[in-house]
């Protein structure tokens, strides 16, 4: 009896050892099965960009977002290599190793992170900062740039883009790029966008203006009228509106008017009109902020036009503004 038990125990131990040896030595990864979510993190965030509008005031649109960070792992089949007796090759004992899938058992592979952004709709009544200026969205998550601060960087004719940084008290900052493409190429020759760059929005497009280069451009027929205040109050704001109308038979392309003045608060103001079809009109308004400088009582400003055919010096008009 004792001997039998010893033999049985030895056999069991041998079998266990064999199995254990088989597991540690022969388990390997097989085919890919699936990705599994290990854990999920959610971070509240927001998105901001330029909203398509018309008129002279850019509009920022804010949307709620939830940034889901998914910690994923790739799962693979578990393969075990089992040694069996190969009796096909005659009486000599030979082993044959066969891979076998361990049913119900998966092996973890590479871990990776997936980020998904879930749109949460307009971000209404929320406060953000651009520089040191606090702005609050309306019920539609929009902020109308009534003081045209987004137009200001592009009053430098040489500047074609500006990076804007928006900051939220808890959700951190977002950057996006506003471009100003004065001679837009047709869609077929648009340049590829860098995927890693911050999102870009064209200012003129957002204002509903078309600055695509035309093949045919009219020469005559553009009528320009100005609404320039004759007098302004120091320390206050006022507006200058330019209305144009194309009375010609051809479109007039990429119409642009710039203010020239010795006064920094007048100089450089750009008025955008884009392509004007025959019979169409357009209008653009800029806000001017009159300084409290009492030295000069009179200011002069000239408005000069440029279109696809080049500058139009004969259309330049000069105005006098009296400060009170």
């Amino acid at each position: 009896m004792k001997t039998y038990l010893h033999i049985l125990l030895a056999g069991l131990l041998t079998f266990a050892a064999t199995q254990a040896s088989a597991q540690t030595k022969f388990k390997r990864r097989g085919r890919f099965v699936e990705e599994q979510l290990e854990r999920k993190e959610e971070t509240p965030s927001y998105a901001v960009g330029l909203e398509k509008t018309t008129g002279s005031l850019p509009v920022l649109a804010f949307r709620k977002q939830t940034i889901q960070t998914l910690h994923m792992v790739k799962m693979y089949e578990t393969i075990v290599e089992v040694a069996t007796l190969d009796d096909t090759k005659g009486p000599v004992y030979r082993e044959r190793v066969e891979p076998q899938v361990v049913p119900g058992e998966l092996m973890a592979g590479e871990r990776f992170i997936k980020t998904e952004t879930i749109d949460g709709g307009p971000f209404a009544n929320e406060t953000f900062r651009i520089g040191d200026i606090e702005i609050t969205t309306d019920k539609d998550g929009l902020i109308v740039d009534t003081h045209q601060r987004l137009l200001a960087p592009f009053d430098q004719i040489a500047r074609n883009s500006a990076e804007i940084t928006i900051t939220h008290a808890t959700m951190g900052e977002k950057k996006f790029v506003i471009t100003r493409d004065l001679l837009k190429k047709p869609t077929s020759v648009q340049r590829a966008v860098d995927a890693d760059a911050p999102p870009a929005y064209d200012l003129l497009e957002s204002l509903g203006l078309d600055f695509t280069q035309l093949r045919q451009n009219g020469k005559d027929g553009l009528v320009i009228s100005y609404k320039v205040p004759e007098s302004v109050k120091a320390g206050k704001t006022s507006k200058i509106t330019i209305d144009i109308a194309n009375h010609g038979t051809l479109p007039i392309g990429t119409v642009l008017i710039r203010a020239f003045s010795r006064e920094p608060w007048l100089n450089g103001k750009m008025f955008y009109f884009g392509n004007i079809a025959p019979g169409k009109k357009a209008s653009f308004t800029r806000e001017i902020v009159i300084p409290d400088d009492k030295r000069t009582e009179v200011s002069h400003v000239a408005f000069a036009e440029w279109n696809l055919l080049g500058n139009q010096p004969e259309k330049t008009q000069t105005f006098k503004i009296t400060r009170k």
Binding site: I157, R262, W306, N311, P313
Partner: peptide, 15 residues
């Protein structure tokens, strides 16, 4: 001033 010189060149204005 690059900005000024480009602007005057583009728009044909002289100060």
């Amino acid at each position: 001033d690059v900005n000024y010189s480009r602007a005057v060149e583009r728009f044909g204005i002289k100060f």
